[in-house]
């Protein structure tokens, strides 16, 4: 009867069996809500993001929050040790989380984290990449597509310029980084499936 919510933002991957699903979900909510609020705070630091309508900001944040968090918390996935460190500091071997049914999603998360960390980005480059990730999220329901397109172009150009300026001899880093965007989309879909499979009775 134990409830499994093996998200690194949760305090523990498995909850005691005497807790109701609603209690487990409420406890998890206390863990992920601050992270979501941090993404909203981050969005306010993105040049031009505030010029979008509030509804469009909300739509992009709804679509892109998981992907931004995935980039932000990449370091929780230790590819060498094959461990995941939860935000409460506890570290779990991949094998034990896999046994909880988190295999495919975690494998994809490890793969993404490894590829991103191999690029050796500076923190300001990661921030700019997260901004690109957010404005590249699914645009269902966006009212001013042209404004989002323009913002996306501006941010991608800024990112490219920064990388070219800092690494004039590494022409591959920018295309390699952009290739991580479809990876994040795939991760987002896998993550959504997991979320939908956790139902509150």
């Amino acid at each position: 009867g134990a409830k499994v919510l093996a998200c690194p933002l949760n305090s523990c991957p498995v909850s005691p069996s005497d807790r109701s699903t609603q209690q487990v979900w409420d406890a998890f909510s206390q863990c992920f809500s601050p992270a979501v609020r941090d993404v909203v705070e981050f969005s306010r630091s993105i040049p031009g993001f505030h010029t979008l309508s509030q509804d469009d900001q909300i739509r992009l944040l709804k679509s892109g929050t998981f992907q931004v968090l995935m980039v932000r918390f990449c370091s929780l996935f230790d590819a060498k040790q094959r461990t995941v460190t939860f935000l409460n500091g506890q570290t779990y071997p991949l094998a034990s989380l896999r046994a909880l049914g988190m295999g495919a999603l975690l494998d994809a998360m490890f793969d993404f984290s490894e590829k991103l960390s191999m690029l050796g980005l500076e923190s300001d480059e990661v921030s700019l990449f997260m901004a690109v990730v957010l404005v590249s999220a699914d645009r269902s329901g966006i009212s001013n597509m042209a404004a989002v397109d323009k913002l996306q172009d501006d941010l991608i150009n800024t990112l490219r310029s920064l990388l070219v300026q800092r690494r004039p001899n590494d022409a591959e880093i920018f295309p390699k980084l952009l290739l991580r965007l479809p990876d994040l989309r795939t991760l987002n879909s896998l993550h959504s499936e997991k979320l939908l499979s956790f139902r509150i009775d």
């Binding site: 809500s33 979501v36 705070e41 509030q54 909300i58 944040l61 709804k62 993550h191 979320l195």
Partner: peptide
């Protein structure tokens, strides 16, 4: 729940965070 974002109550958290930031801005 048919939508993961709804499942998480994501819109509510985002909306409150965005609105809160507006409310806290000085006139």
């Amino acid at each position: 729940f048919s939508d993961p974002a709804s499942n998480l109550g994501l819109e509510d958290i985002i909306r409150k965070a965005l609105m809160g930031s507006v409310d806290e801005r000085p006139e």
